[in-house]
Design a protein around this nucleic acid. Structure first.
Length: 473
RNA sequence: GUCCCCAUCGUCUAGUGGCCUAGGACGCUGGCCUCUCACGCCGGUAACGGGGGUUCGACUCCCCCUGGGGACGCCA
């Protein structure tokens, strides 16, 4: 039997990191077993469903490389099918009309709570024959079995048992005639041939109810895997209040999709001591059955470290898109890919994020002189560097071949001529060229910057030093 | 409150009764490398929540406590 899994978000907001993890685990497990992933938007609550949210979820999944094989399907489109099933249940007396008002139910729950009981519907309309008044509003409830228990072998949680008397008669159809989530899920999972449901542990308590429904309809029950939740830094379930930001915010912040996936997959799952996984490796190795049962706390330091590794390990071509995106965000546009491809390798192991990379390479593209960082200038732009710097400038000007080796020879000749150490030369040069005290190797930096900009910035550096010397007198 | 789940370094985890004086990773930290930064390498820091059992022997099995989390909607 071919594996069919679904990711079923409700369109009430963007795809956050916890939802992304669920989608990822679905995707990975399904890929491992060669199955089919289905995206189904759970929009039975039309009031809270938003098209923008659907788009945001789709965008988030696409960025992470989690596009579904089928869908998106919209649960609201299946309304008639859901309601047909309820008719069947009504006829079979597995469902009944309940005329209780919300106030009545609230009061009932309050009483139960104060009596130390679990609040739940007490079934008072179960055997009510007729409507209190002909036009009384009603909901339709499922007539659950009262005895026995629901047992299933959860792929993560192991055997789970729930006594039927712990449950209550859930609502299938609202008083406005619309199907509820639990009904829609069961009908859709069945109709779509879903045979494995992977979802968050927060759905654990829905599962026995849904299994009861499957059984009442004499349908095959899918398998289940309830993932432990991802918690925020405060240890509580991720929510908008607990820093559950859109996954696309990670793109903004310069994270690579593969790194985000890699980070997420290690929360609850491991493969020996391996920390860094390519997407392909994850798809080959991951198995939902190996996921642990305890919740994990989101830790941005680890994500940053993983991101830096994915940047280092990437082919430069694979960084083009994200780098161009980040450059454009800081106002640098129109840089040729071929030029970027020369630059990227020098910055891969120096950038933890693509934002950082864009910032670090920005000095190469500005036409004006780079502003000197005060600390860098103070520490390295010493008056004593005037001689070496100006001599270097003129020797570079007459240097025929702007290559790493030729540039190195020129530098070495200056070192010999002045009897100074590399640090005394390279650092002032670095500040003059980049405005900062850090950059790739100095020869590489000159190569990337090019002859023209190098010479003019060095000259400006000499002027800067001369002015400084003049002011000191 | 009721029901359910979880419990190894601050964090992510390995560990499936003896290989554990508990391994790896992030973080923090000492050092090496070095033209800077980074990478890399070497070292350090730090954990089996508590109490009972079971056993020749428990991080590993059972029970209780404690702690954390989740669920209890005409939301999904």
């Amino acid at each position: 039997m071919t594996l069919r899994t679904r990711f079923a978000p409700s369109p009430t907001g963007f795809l956050h990191i916890g939802g992304a993890r669920t989608a990822l685990f679905c995707h990975l497990h399904t890929r491992h077993y060669g199955g089919t992933t289905i995206l189904r938007v759970e929009d039975t609550d039309l009031e809270r469903s938003k098209q923008e949210a659907v788009d945001a979820i789709l965008d988030g999944m696409h960025w992470l490389g989690l596009d579904p094989d089928e869908g998106p399907y919209f649960q609201s489109a299946n309304r008639e099918k859901h309601l047909d099933i309820v008719d069947q249940l009504l006829i079979a007396e597995r469902a009944y009309r309940c005329y209780c008002s919300k106030e009545e139910l609230d009061q009932m729950r309050d009483e139960q709570r104060s009596a130390g009981l679990k609040p739940r519907y007490d079934g008072r309309c179960r055997d009510r024959g007729s409507a209190p008044t002909p036009d009384a509003p009603y909901v339709i409830r499922f007539r659950r079995p009262k005895v026995g228990e629901v047992i299933w072998q959860d792929k993560i949680q192991g055997e789970v048992r729930v006594r039927n008397d712990e449950l209550d008669d859930l609502i299938l159809v609202r008083s406005d005639g619309s199907p509820t989530y639990n009904l829609a899920v069961v009908v859709d999972d069945h109709n779509m041939g879903i045979n494995l449901v992977i979802r968050g542990e927060d759905h654990l308590s829905n599962t026995p109810r849904q299994i009861q429904l499957f059984e009442a309809l004499a349908w095959d029950v899918p398998e289940y895997a309830h993932m432990p939740l991802l918690h925020g830094e405060d240890g509580a379930k991720l929510s908008k209040r607990h820093g559950a930001v859109s996954v696309l915010a990670f793109k903004e912040d310069g994270f690579l999709a593969s790194a985000v996936n890699n980070y997420l997959v290690r929360l609850g799952w491991s493969h020996g001591d391996q920390e860094i996984f390519t997407t392909k490796e994850m798809e080959e190795l991951f198995d939902i059955c190996e996921v642990g049962r305890s919740a994990a706390i989101f830790n941005s330091d680890k994500l940053l470290w993983i991101n830096s590794h994915h940047i280092m390990d990437a082919q430069p071509e694979d960084l083009l898109e994200e780098l161009t995106y980040q450059l454009q965000r800081i106002g640098i546009e129109g840089v040729e890919n071929s030029r970027l491809l020369e630059i990227i390798p020098e910055f891969q192991e120096r950038s933890k994020t693509m934002v950082e990379m864009a910032q670090k390479i920005a000095f190469l593209f500005i036409d004006e002189l780079p502003p000197y960082e005060p600390n860098a200038a103070k520490k390295h732009m010493k008056i004593a560097a005037i001689g070496p710097l100006s001599e270097l400038t003129s020797r570079l000007e007459s240097c025929q071949d702007w290559s790493h080796d030729s540039i190195e020879k020129v530098f070495k000749s200056i070192l010999d001529a002045f009897g100074i150490k590399m640090g005394k030369l390279a650092q002032p040069v670095r500040v003059a060229l980049t405005g900062t005290a850090t950059s790739p190797g100095i020869y590489e930096t000159l190569c990337l910057l090019g002859r023209q900009k190098t010479i003019s910035r060095l000259k400006a550096g000499v002027v800067f030093l001369e002015e400084k010397a003049a002011a000191a007198e």
